[in-house]
């Protein structure tokens, strides 16, 4: 059986990243958009850890830990803002939140 190589991980992370970008671009529900962003951040984590193993130093894993922490902080702030949005607009659909225009 063929063993796992760096390329497998890179492909996985590229697919995840594209799915994340796709989610952010197409979804209109603010919470689902946030999930897309989480996918993007975590695809970078896979990259970092795979490269860390490949390059033979710990820098990548260290950064990945920071990214996890920051992603959690970002989700906390974003969810708080979205919760507030819901209490003001009674919706989390981004298309219906459109008071600011050109």
């Amino acid at each position: 059986m063929e063993s796992l190589t760096l390329n497998h991980f890179l492909t996985l992370s590229a697919v995840l990243f594209s799915l994340g970008v796709f989610g952010v671009m197409t979804r209109r529900n603010a919470v689902v958009v946030l999930m897309g962003i989480e996918l993007m951040l975590n695809s970078a984590n896979i990259n970092l850890i795979a490269f860390s193993r490949y390059n033979g130093n710990m820098d990548g894993q260290m950064l990945a830990i920071f990214v996890i922490v920051l992603a959690a902080a970002e989700a906390a702030v974003a969810l708080a803002i979205i919760l507030n949005l819901y209490s003001n607009y009674n919706t989390v659909n981004l298309d219906e939140v459109d008071q600011l225009k050109e």
Partner: peptide
Amino acid sequence: NESGVKYIIYGSF
């Protein structure tokens, strides 16, 4: 509130 939501989505993207 609306500007905050737009900001955080662009920002985290």
